[in-house]
Design a protein around this nucleic acid. Structure first.
Lengths: 372, 372
DNA sequence: ATAGTAATTGAAAGCGTTTACATATTCGAT
DNA sequence: ATCGAATATGTAAACGCTTTCAATTACTAT
């Protein structure tokens, strides 16, 4: 399409070939294969009759550009269906507007909930989140972090405070702040709670009811500053009353519901006077497994056995009986972590430690021991 | 470290500064604020005594570079802790090695499972995945897709085949392939199953047992090609036998466990001879809610009421009684979707439709109706 | 009107890769 | 040794944006 010559608002006419300049490498509106090329800032600039710098400003700092100009740019951008190339922006600004989060597992509802609210909050702030799971393995986690770092994430959310030492070094080197979640720390920025205290309280509650033989079942405690302290809390509560938690009542299982079923068999296999009268579980999934196996074997919960879970998963309230559990506000953890990380990335280092309070929610799986 | 002169395997000596070349623009190892700058390809090139192009090749197409050179580059890269800047690479190659996926909700275990295996597969292929949830809302989904497209994702995984029409146009424009999941289509590439057939079979199973009054409860069916066909399947099965599914036995609820509880009340509120004798649920969560409410009201499942769920969530097998449900291999969907998308992105358009077969897993919540 | 100041805009230099093209090197066959 | 083909490497131009700095334009108060 050849236009009549006339006043041209842009920097130079472009619909006809300018013989002064060598032929541009590519035809500006279509690819070598004839496909329409996506519009770039330059195209918007030309259509709006401004410079590319102004386009950038109109888009990023609208207040720095005169209203009339801004509108012209916006109109041109809309007309062309212009979409900013975030790789170019990231390269230029050295920030990706992307954050990474690594959870131990997607199989644990509480992490999914936290991830979800973390993501929602980040999204509202204009960030995308790259998520990954470590499967409770430090090496896998490190690998994922390396991947995320290469991807240029601006921040990182991790669960717990035990990680590959190289992780902190690498993050530091890339100047990527880390927010730790689900456990507390006095060295790192974190949003979490005192895992030991949570089960300590639950154990005391059971002890107050008259229970003497408690059991505790958690998933892996290796490199895990949530599960390990939870077990500790139970030990501690008993020790304070001069009781001792029998080693056979202290179980580490692989996580998940079926693991809970196995745990039941191990715990309740011995002679009756040695069996625990109450079990504190590291997750509601484990508790559910235990309840399921108990039901199958005709063991009455809570009469013959009390059970306390952890996390208050969605199914917990509707089990029969409803599961007594330690509720953790995962949404709050996700959201607060996001907010804290946002703060850190903004170089504001005000946020330090956000302490969440777990709550023992009393439902139907706890009763005093049978023979007082 | 100065080596004695002798045979040098590389192209040229590199441990001393070459005075022939002009001094680099910036001090190469530190920033204006004195902070150590992260090494870039140029630094590696200098240390290895090769050009930046060779560094790139050594890293991306090692076979195109002589072994000795390659090793020198690798060594230099390792020594400097060089990490490739993916924004720059994305800008240069016009591909981000990132894919996006949008699920309706993280609250539905089946989507999380699919997402997880999708991610694992993509990760193994060197892709990162950006995930988002639409909360079953087309506008939200469109917005997220726009965000992902701006982010330059190379591919997209979507659940179902009903989306904002603009979505396809935008994706097409950006030349981003889409893989549809959890439902079948004859127009789009997809990995899914026949939702209608799944419940059709389940309904027939109940009908064969002698049930005459079936009910169906699903989450929202608006713009939803999974829930709606599931309801249809039940209608269809009954119609084939000259039966009619009463409108009051056809319920749409908000998803989740509590929604299931509400459904129970509505369904079982009427006089006994009008109540359904079996309920087919759109998800296991709904089924769980129904079972919970039934248990609370002393309605015996399966004697007084049969229940069939959908998805075979992790908790379903351990409920009491264990939930009869339609199992869908979400891992397979995630994995196959990833593989198919990988194919599409590689411009190989061989993969068309991958059909997954749902399976009715018989457990404890189904029995013949009480009075035959 | 007009000088001085503040607010806008534009030109151009990056950001760190990849890659087409040109050049240099290697190697096998004579 | 020597030539040519094949292979390896280097040079430099993108990729599409942001941002500094300078130049221009728009105000404000004489």
């Amino acid at each position: 399409m050849v236009k009549p010559s006339g006043p041209v608002t842009g920097t130079q006419a472009l619909s006809t070939i300018n013989p002064d300049h060598p032929l541009p490498r590519k035809n500006r509106s279509s690819n070598s294969d004839g496909r329409t090329r996506l519009p770039v800032a330059q195209d918007v600039a030309e259509l709006a009759g401004v410079s590319i710098a102004t386009v950038s400003r109109a888009l990023n700092e609208p207040e720095k550009v005169r209203p009339a100009t801004r509108e012209a740019v916006m109109k041109a951008a809309a007309e062309l269906g212009f979409v900013l190339n975030s790789a170019a922006r990231a390269l230029s600004t050295r920030r990706s507007s992307t954050v990474g989060v690594i959870v131990p597992s997607y199989g644990n509802e509480v992490f999914v909930r936290a991830l979800s609210s973390f993501q929602r909050t980040m999204r509202a702030a204009g960030y995308q989140v790259l998520a990954a799971s470590s499967e409770y393995d430090l090496a896998t986690e490190m690998q994922e972090v390396a991947f995320l770092l290469q991807r240029g994430v601006d921040g990182l959310m991790l669960v717990g405070g035990i990680h590959d030492p190289a992780l902190y070094a690498r993050a530091e080197r890339s100047q990527v702040p880390i927010i730790q979640s689900f456990s507390l720390s006095d060295r790192e920025y974190c949003v979490g709670f005192d895992n030991r205290e949570a089960t300590f309280r639950a154990a005391n509650y059971l002890l107050d009811l008259g229970h003497k033989r408690l059991a505790v079942v958690t998933g892996t405690r290796e490199n895990n500053d949530r599960a390990a302290p939870r077990a500790e809390g139970v030990h501690l509560a008993m020790a304070e009353r001069g009781l001792k938690l029998s080693p056979v009542h202290d179980l580490i299982v692989s996580s998940g519901i079926v693991a809970g079923r196995d745990a039941f068999s191990q715990l309740m296999g011995g002679p009756e006077e040695q069996r625990p009268t109450a079990i504190i579980c590291g997750t509601d999934e484990i508790a559910l497994g235990i309840m399921s196996e108990a039901s199958e074997r005709g063991i009455d919960i809570p009469r013959a056995l009390s059970v306390i879970g952890f996390n208050d998963s969605s199914f917990s309230a509707v089990l029969s009986p409803p599961l007594t559990t330690i509720r953790v506000d995962a949404d709050e953890i996700g959201k607060s972590s996001a907010l804290a990380l946002l703060n850190l990335m903004g170089a504001r280092t005000t946020v330090q430690v956000t302490r969440i309070t777990p709550e023992l929610v009393l439902r139907g799986t706890v009763a005093p021991p049978e023979k007082l």
